[in-house]
Design a protein around this nucleic acid. Structure first.
Lengths: 141, 141
DNA sequence: GCTACAATCTGTAGCGACTACAGATGCAAG
DNA sequence: CTTGCATCTGTAGTCGCTACAGATTGTAGC
């Protein structure tokens, strides 16, 4: 383990998290405030780096910042049990599946509309027509 | 055609667009300001209703408000050609496909992690373990 | 030591697309 | 006329950052 003391720039470089975002995470209490240099510059150690990487990975998996907060055990005293984390995850999976369904339906509709465009030869645009007439109608939300 | 003059509440009811959202669309110039009653209440006609439904449908298809503005021909004088609209649409389709791919990858990873949870019997949580160790790593963005 | 110049600091405002108030009016039924 | 809902304007909040401005600090070359 090298670099026990990293500046915010080095941490950003090393984790792939934007500098502004790191400060933002500190402000909202996700990342603990690190010690400072004589001139008030932040100096991060390995625990901070690991925590930040954890946050980034959880974000990549689609957890919201509030959920990350819960996963980190910052939510009012007690850590989540494994069962609670599993429930949270499965809730996510369901949401993702629904979103995939929605997007696929959208893609199909848009593809059909685009397919009706005969390369600038038609007088009026079938896509605008569809937006005005809407025989397709997406499901109610 | 009934109800040549609808209040904002009736319009909202009839189109499925929130009252606040209707006022918001007016404020940003997507929906023209309607005439008012003696007491400054908005009174909408059929053209407004049709326009609002057009906006809602375009939004349902994933067009941004700026794109809707373009589709409506509000973007600085000239309307979009059919070819431009088609290009816009196909750009969307590509973006949607990419999002679907990302979400499916996410779903697969989360499902695998959730599957490793053996219903509260294991000592430590495999999901948290994964967030800390991250052998899976999602692709760089 | 001095001078550049880069990095970091704090604080605030902006993004998209709404949503949620507060506090003041208007309107329609009984 | 009163009651109570609808609507009005204006502003602030949401989420997860991102982008400044303007002031300091850290560092490398001379």
């Amino acid at each position: 383990m090298r670099a026990a003391q990293a500046t915010i720039g080095a941490l950003s470089e090393g984790t792939g998290v934007n500098i502004e975002t790191i400060r933002y995470y500190e402000r909202i209490g996700l990342l603990p405030a690190p010690p400072r240099s004589a001139g008030r510059h932040r100096l991060y150690g390995d625990t901070h780096r690991q925590r930040l990487i954890f946050i980034r990975r959880a974000r990549e998996l689609g957890f919201s910042l509030e959920e990350v907060r819960a996963l980190l055990g910052l939510g009012g005293g007690h850590d989540l049990t494994c069962g609670e984390i599993r429930a949270l995850t499965q809730h996510h999976i369901a949401a993702i599946r629904e979103k995939v369904r929605d997007l696929k339906r959208l893609e199909r509709i848009l593809s059909e509309l685009a397919g009706q465009c005969k390369a600038d030869k038609v007088p009026d645009c079938p896509i605008l027509d569809a937006l005005n007439a809407a025989t397709w109608r997406t499901a109610q939300r």
